[in-house]
Structure formats: structure tokens, C-alpha cells
């Protein structure tokens, strides 16, 4: 199995609309306290579906930090 090297990152300007959470195939995103979307790094596979639908365009797919 290939290692999961990417991760969704939510920007601070998130409007907490929940579009990302509704399309996430791994249920890796939740809207914390109606304030901001949060990604569970253990579940996120970096597929980018959330970034494609985010109406505020605040989600980026970034490389995971590899621990030495």
C-alpha cells in the first residue's frame, strides 16, 4: 500500500459552511463549534474533493511533514 503523503489544510478564513465535510469520502472533516472546519490527519487521504468544493477557496492540499 502506498503511503499517504498529502493532507488537506484549512485556512483561517474558513466560513464553516460545511461543504467540505459533506463531500469528504473518509468523514475526515468536522466543523468545530460552528467556527472552523478541522481535518483529522489520521483519516485524510489528501484526495482534494474538499478543496474543489470549498466556496471560499481556503483549503489547500499540502505534503505531509515526514517525521525522521
Amino acid at each position: 500500500m502506498r503511503p499517504n503523503l498529502k493532507l488537506a489544510r484549512i485556512g483561517r478564513e474558513c466560513v464553516a459552511c460545511g461543504c467540505c465535510a459533506s463531500v469528504c469520502p473518509r468523514q475526515a472533516i468536522r466543523i468545530a463549534g460552528g467556527v472552523i472546519a478541522r481535518v483529522d490527519p489520521a483519516l485524510c487521504v489528501g484526495c482534494g474533493k474538499c478543496a474543489a468544493v470549498c466556496p471560499a477557496a481556503v483549503i489547500t492540499i499540502e505534503a505531509r511533514e515526514v517525521q525522521a
Binding site: 466560513v15 460552528g34 467556527v35 468544493v53 470549498c54 466556496p55
Partner: peptide
């Protein structure tokens, strides 16, 4: 994008503000 309204929806802004204050 389809739900661009959500970005500046006054109800969304207001409820997010309330949640921020509440939390």
C-alpha cells in the same frame, strides 16, 4: 463556486460570530 453565497451569507456570518463568542 456553487455555494459562493455561503461565504457572505449574512445569516452564516452572524451564526459563525455567535459560535465564536459562545465558544
Amino acid at each position: 463556486r456553487p455555494r459562493s453565497w455561503c461565504v457572505y451569507c449574512p445569516m452564516g456570518t452572524m451564526t459563525q460570530g455567535i459560535c465564536q463568542l459562545k465558544h
